[in-house]
Design a protein around this nucleic acid. Structure first.
Length: 883
RNA sequence: GCGGGCGUGGCGGAAUUGGUAGACGCAACAGACUUAAAAUCUGUCGGGAGUAAUCCCGUGCCGGUUCAAGUCCGGCCGCCCGCACCA
């Protein structure tokens, strides 16, 4: 019997699929369609095993749905703009585009080796003008609709890389890449007005529109949007005469606890608050204080340890309800980004305010009485009280619960015309400007006379200019240097006078916010054709890493809404079902030589061999230190190459291993033993199929023979149980269990005596037993096909199946074979299993009880006792209670 | 600090959602084949007692509900993730 040879088989079947155009999504037949999408890769250079896991999952779904008769769209492309290309350019002097496209070439070849059922005709890269020009067109539309706007904003500025950094890219106050201390600058930046949709983005998480999303992702988005209801109100200055110019009206604050207004003892504003900035002009000490606040780290520890500090201003505010005067501080713990950048301090009800009041000797009026406390004797220890209770010392609020107090206080303030109930969001508008070259140019022109003017649509695309390779070696954005003057200097589209292009490009998250729509429809005169996009969207199954739980998935949801308003498409929620898969992790290995720096001590797994169960470094023959199991990363060198795996075991084994054992949402550890196990499985399937040449041919599977021996019936039952089980498991993303069932089925199949002639040749008879075996093999191959597609084709051909197995229909379970005439019930006495009994499946409780009580083991255990109760759970269990 | 999740053999993990704990795989051990190894096949494989039949214990710990708890409830311990001076 020949051994299965993936090196020959895999390229052969890949070529056949391509020749048959097997995975092209049909444009016409969208009534029974299914759109499977895995988050498209950044072309970093090479596919890693994590990609293999991600795409293998999507491929199982895509192949399964195709077999079920769906018109499947399963595309692939490249998230191709971004910093790494520019960093590579900085190092090598090559154009970022060159680097990107050569990576795409390499990675496409690697992906094709994995045998994915991709419709490659729809492939694109976001850095291609055919893609980004439509992004520019939509940008203009968004601008027109006021979804895109410019504003001055405080940004994290990396002085070495000379670019703005997202908050996530600032680590301990330093740039994640350059390590330079990040500065805070005010820059005029482009924003998308995502906060306008905050309420709907939040509502959809809870009203069933995203019922196909995992709870943890929804929770993260909920927290990120961070809705809180409260009161926004103005504290007037106690002496209007002293108010600085422009701030005469008072200080606007936001609070979620207006019920505690009587507990107010000070007002605090952020160091970045305009009032603080303005007053600092005449107050050098305040200026110093503000500068000091801005220097402080933003890391977790820095915040936790940071002392509450304030600077008392020479102004006071009046209390809205009585004649108290409240001092005004600039305080380091008040954030400009949230609410109004100003608060009223209620020390008794807020720990930060409490610490602040203690430090500056401010009063701490008690206003919430915890349940069961005596108003005369209740006192705070060393903490604010934030729990439930009744309001007191609060005039018209006395005796109310916190909830009622909030409503009453808001009503009163509204009556007085000082403010109103308001909902605040933590979510901020999306800053999309990046001072980078390798991104989608923002189609705007700055004119001294006309201001910021949109590039006329007829002038799109604004292409990235040709830049001499040398220029990339300098930090910063070449678009904003003289080398780009030919591109940068343009006449104003409105007045015709000399003007300058916007040199910022768009955040790459913009590129990935609509690519799924472009996969569905790629007209050459607009972003998408509405009818085509509507026919395919929403994506039925989206699969990707949990690291995109917030930003990408939130931006894409907003972008769909914006596109809908602009008339490009009709869906608001682009992803019907979302699955977030776990990472691939691997052991790390370290050179024991501690004189080297840690960074230099990591060793690639391929340099390790096992001797007597211990890892040895081939280079030295000496043992290495086994480090922790971690996410595969280049820096720790704990990576394995999908190409090497495919060379050794084939793509099928790699795919099988990535989906077996661990549940898909959990991390999986890559081990050599694991992939070897998968390789064994490939061979076991092949060994089961190989002797059965053309075994399918004599049979009409729609007409099972009436009579069959016991082994045949048992095999048919196993076949149909496997079909039902695997189908259910795939539907529910339980690939590890689907695989376990295939193993079980294979074990059952191998226990059945082979039904071939003695000389090993296939039986051409239509004997019932041969039918059962042929049916089992046919099902086995089709059930395994989504996981190990190349092997399945080879098997299908051997068995004499019609056409390609990737075009074959999914097997259907016969319900009659899933039903059992008799079942085995476990029998418990006092909750402990003592025996089991075989009864008719439809036996009534009385006869089951009788059968159970007649068992020897049961009699032994109830001897000398009285049977108090017999619990019969039909089809499940019997429990006899005796004492 | 706030929010969420998880804890099952040597390991990855199953357990139809309250009903036979340990499916399936990996590793290990024993045997068959082989001059030998690899591959393959067969068997054993949570702990303890016993020749055996069988019995006792066992899902992080303590308690509770129930005929019945890995699963539900309360309280601890440990690990992981997200957010974080959000007023």
């Amino acid at each position: 019997m020949s051994r299965y040879n993936p090196k020959e088989s895999e390229p052969k079947w890949q070529a056949r699929w391509a020749a048959a155009d097997a995975f092209a999504a049909s444009k016409a037949k969208t009534d029974r369609r299914y759109y499977v999408l895995e988050m498209f890769p950044y072309p970093s250079g090479k596919i890693h095993i994590g990609h293999v896991r991600n795409y293998a999952m999507g491929d199982v779904i895509a192949r399964y749905k195709k077999a079920c008769g769906y018109n499947v769209l399963h595309p692939m492309g490249w998230d191709a703009f971004g910093m790494p290309a520019e960093n590579a350019a900085m190092q090598t002097g090559a154009h970022p585009g060159e680097w990107t496209f050569s990576n795409i070439e390499a990675m496409r070849a690697q992906l094709k080796r994995m045998g994915l059922s991709i419709d490659w005709s729809r492939e694109f890269a976001t850095c291609e003008p055919d893609y980004y020009r439509w992004q520019q067109a939509m940008f203009l539309k968004f601008w027109e609709k006021d979804f895109a706007y410019r504003k001055e904003s405080l940004v994290n500025w990396d002085p070495v890389d000379q670019t703005v950094l997202a908050n996530e890219q600032v680590i301990d106050g330093k740039g994640w890449r350059s390590g330079a201390v990040v500065e805070r600058r005010t820059l005029s930046q482009w924003f998308f007005r995502i906060t306008d949709k905050a309420d709907d983005l939040l509502a959809a998480l809870d009203d069933g529109r995203l019922s196909g999303w995992p709870e943890n992702v929804k929770l993260m988005q909920r927290n990120w949007i961070g809705k809180s209801k409260g009161l926004q109100m103005k504290f007037a200055f106690a002496d209007g005469g002293t108010a600085p110019r422009g701030f005469e009206g008072g200080i606007e604050i936001f609070t979620t606890r207006p019920d505690t207004l009587y507990g107010a003892s000070f007002i605090a504003i952020s160091p970045d608050h305009p009032l603080a900035q303005s007053m600092a002009d005449d107050d050098p000490a305040l200026k110093d204080f503000i500068a000091e606040c801005q220097k402080a780290g933003t890391s977790e520890e820095a915040i936790e340890k940071a002392e509450k500090k304030g600077y008392r201003l020479a102004i006071e505010c009046g209390h809205p309800f009585d004649d108290r005067k409240l001092p005004v501080y600039v305080a380091n713990f008040v954030l400009i980004q949230y609410g109004t950048g100003a608060i009223f301090g209620c020390p008794a009800g807020d720990q930060r305010d409490f610490e602040f009041a203690k430090k500056y000797g401010l009063p701490i009026p008690l206003i919430v009485l915890p349940p069961g406390e005596d108003p005369q004797s209740f006192a705070l220890d060393d903490e604010a009280y934030v729990g439930p209770g009744t309001l007191y010392n609060s005039d018209f609020l006395d005796g109310l619960t916190i909830e009622d107090g909030i409503a009453a206080a808001i009503a009163k303030i509204e009556d007085m015309g000082l403010g109103e109930g308001k909902t605040q969001y933590r979510l901020r508008d999306w800053g999309v400007s990046r001072q980078r070259f390798w991104g989608c140019p923002i189609p705007a022109i700055h004119c001294e006379t006309c201001g910021v003017v949109p590039v006329p649509e007829k002038d799109l695309p604004v292409l990235l200019p040709e830049i001499a390779a040398d220029e990339f070696k300098n930090p910063g954005n070449p678009l904003d240097r003289s080398c780009a003057d030919d591109w940068r200097n343009v006449p104003c589209p409105e007045c015709g006078r000399p003007a300058r292009r916007e040199t910022d490009t768009m955040d790459t998250f913009v590129d990935s916010s609509w690519y799924f729509a472009r996969f569905a429809s790629q007209p050459d005169d607009k972003p998408v054709d509405k009818a085509d996009a509507d026919a395919w969207l929403p994506v039925n199954q989206y699969i990707g890493g949990i690291e995109h739980a917030i930003l990408h998935l939130l931006y894409a949801r907003w972008f769909s809404r914006a596109m809908k308003v602009c008339g490009y498409l009709s869906v608001e929620e682009p992803f019907e079902n979302l699955f977030t898969q776990g990472m691939v992790v691997h052991e790390t290995y370290l050179d024991p030589d501690e004189t080297k720096s840690l960074k230099e001590r990591w060793i690639f797994p391929e340099e390790i061999s096992m001797q007597n169960g211990r890892p040895i470094w081939e280079k030295t023959g000496a043992p290495v230190i086994v480090g922790p199991i971690e996410k595969m990363s280049k820096s720790k060198k704990n990576v394995v190459s999908p190409d090497d795996i495919a060379d050794t075991y084939g793509a099928d084994a790699a795919r099988w291993f990535m989906l077996s054992d661990s549940p898909p949402e959990r991390d999986v550890e890559w081990t050599d033993a694991g992939v070897e196990g998968a390789w064994k499985l490939v061979n076991r399937i092949w060994d089961a199929v190989a002797p059965a040449t053309d075994a399918l041919k004599p049979h009409d599977f729609s007409k099972p023979p009436a009579a069959m021996d016991e082994a045949g019936v048992a095999l048919r039952r196993a076949t149909h149980a496997a079909i039902a089980g695997v189908t259910d498991d795939i539907e529910h993303f339980r690939f590890n269990k689907a695989i376990a069932r295939i193993y079980e089925f294979l074990n059952a199949l191998k226990k059945t005596p082979p039904m071939t002639k003695e000389d090993g040749a296939p039986s051409n008879s239509v004997k019932a037993e041969a039918f059962a075996q042929a049916e089992a093999l046919s099902a086995l191959v089709r059930l395994a096909a989504p996981f190990v597609p190349h092997l399945a084709e080879e098997c299908w051909e051997t068995l004499g199946g019609d056409g390609l197995v990737c075009d074959a229909p999914w097997p259907e379970a016969d319900a009659a074979l899933l039903r059992r005439d008799t079942i085995t019930l476990p029998i418990q006495v006092n909750g402990k299993r003592r025996d089991e009994v075989e009864v008719a499946a439809d036996a009534d409780n009385a006869s089951v009880e009788k059968a159970a009580l007649s068992l020897d083991a049961v009699q032994r255990h109830i001897e000398g006792k009285t049977v108090r109760k017999v619990v019969v759970v039909p089809g499940r269990i019997v429990n006899i209670v005796a004492n």
